[in-house]
Computed example of a mutant assay.
Amino acid sequence: MKVYGVVGWKNAGKTGLMERLVAEITGRGYCVSTIKHAHHVFDVDQRGKDSFRHREAGAKEVLLASRKRFALMHELREDAEPELPELLSKMSPVDLVLVEGYKRDPHPKVEAFRAETGNALIAPDDPTVRAVASDTPVTVEGRPVFDLNATAEIADFILAELGL
């Protein structure tokens, strides 16, 4: 399974780029899955629903299934947050897993960058950032810079990098 990341600071355009890349790459016939790192507590369940009640009662995992989808919720309780390789091992095989976040992990990445955020580029200090997608002209020695909205070009670059 090939893995490629999208990183950047808050409000840099990561999620929009991820969404466009998934649509573009699946539109070319590839099977794509995603992983999104969240820096905050989140819940995909709803208070009062049966699955929520199962978790609240102490279940380590709850699998909620219907004819359209299933969701496996795993409670960490006091366990450490799983590392990216462990999470990848839990996923079904696909052509490409696009990862939003996990900027310190060693997989190749494209950095989403918006000047208005006022943050510095990550790329100059991180060789795993293989390209930048920016809303303003920037230069990063030895790496291509794409317009943040040039989705097809960014997809071409990622697929070529991965040999897909």
Rank of each mutant, 00 (worst) to 15 (best):
V22S: 03
T15L: 12
P93A: 09
A115T: 01
E19K: 07
R130Q: 06
A38N: 12
K60C: 00
E61S: 07
E116S: 10
R130G: 01
M91Q: 12
E19S: 08
L98C: 04
L72C: 02
E78V: 11
E83T: 13
D45S: 01
M91N: 03
A112R: 15
E141N: 13
A23S: 12
G29A: 07
V41H: 15
G163T: 12
V110M: 05
A12L: 08
L87I: 11
S134H: 03
K68C: 04
E83C: 11
D95G: 04
A80L: 10
K90G: 11
I122F: 07
A57V: 03
D95M: 01
A160Y: 15
D126R: 12
T136H: 14
A65M: 13
F70W: 14
V132N: 13
V145A: 03
S89L: 04
A155I: 01
V32R: 09
K90E: 13
E111Y: 15
N11K: 12
G8F: 10
F113Y: 15
V62N: 10
A80Q: 11
L76H: 02
S66D: 05
N149V: 03
I154N: 03
V99P: 05
I122W: 09
E100H: 06
F157K: 09
T128I: 09
R104Q: 08
S33G: 05
G142P: 11
K68D: 10
R104C: 00
L96A: 07
V140D: 09
V138P: 00
L76E: 02
P85Q: 05
R143A: 01
P124F: 06
A131P: 10
L121R: 15
A38D: 14
I25Q: 08
